[in-house]
Simulated assay, not measured.
Amino acid sequence: MSKEMGAVAVFGAIIVVAVIMLLLERRGMAKRKAARGGRDIDVSNLIAFGSAAGEGEKTRTPH
């Protein structure tokens, strides 16, 4: 096998691994969204308000 074919094989393997990781991450995102009841969480709210934003409690006042 020439150097060029080796390079093509290595880069091809990298691309295949990247596509597999992308698909696994998308599947994981779908599972996490389903676990939240299908609603999206704004990441900026999580940074500003913590996990209470994910639970929809950022505007509630403690009693």
Score class of each variant (00 low, 15 high):
Met1Tyr: 00
Ser2Trp: 00
Lys3Phe: 13
Glu4Asn: 09
Met5Gln: 13
Gly6Lys: 04
Gly6Phe: 04
Ala7Arg: 11
Ala7Thr: 08
Val8Ile: 15
Ala9Thr: 10
Val10Asn: 06
Phe11Thr: 14
Phe11Gln: 12
Phe11Gly: 02
Gly12Phe: 11
Gly12Ser: 11
Gly12Met: 06
Ile14Asn: 07
Ile15Asn: 02
Ile15Ala: 15
Ile15His: 01
Val17Ser: 08
Ile20Gly: 14
Met21Thr: 08
Met21Cys: 13
Glu25Trp: 12
Arg27Thr: 10
Gly28Ser: 12
Met29Cys: 10
Arg32Thr: 06
Arg32Lys: 09
Arg32Ser: 14
Lys33Gln: 03
Lys33Phe: 01
Ala35Asn: 04
Ala35Lys: 08
Ala35Leu: 09
Gly37Met: 09
Gly38Asn: 03
Arg39Gln: 12
Arg39Cys: 10
Arg39Leu: 15
Asp40Leu: 08
Asp40Phe: 09
Ile41Gly: 03
Ile41Cys: 09
Asp42Thr: 07
Val43Gly: 03
Val43Arg: 09
Val43Ile: 14
Ser44Val: 15
Asn45Gly: 09
Leu46Thr: 04
Leu46Cys: 07
Ile47Phe: 14
Ile47Arg: 13
Ile47Leu: 15
Ala52His: 00
Ala53Asn: 03
Ala53Val: 02
Gly54Tyr: 00
Gly56Val: 07
Gly56Cys: 06
Glu57Met: 13
Lys58Tyr: 01
Thr59Asp: 05
Thr59Ser: 07
Thr59Cys: 01
Thr59Phe: 03
Arg60Tyr: 01
Thr61Met: 10
Thr61Pro: 00
Thr61Ser: 10
Thr61Cys: 04
Thr61Leu: 12
Pro62Gln: 05
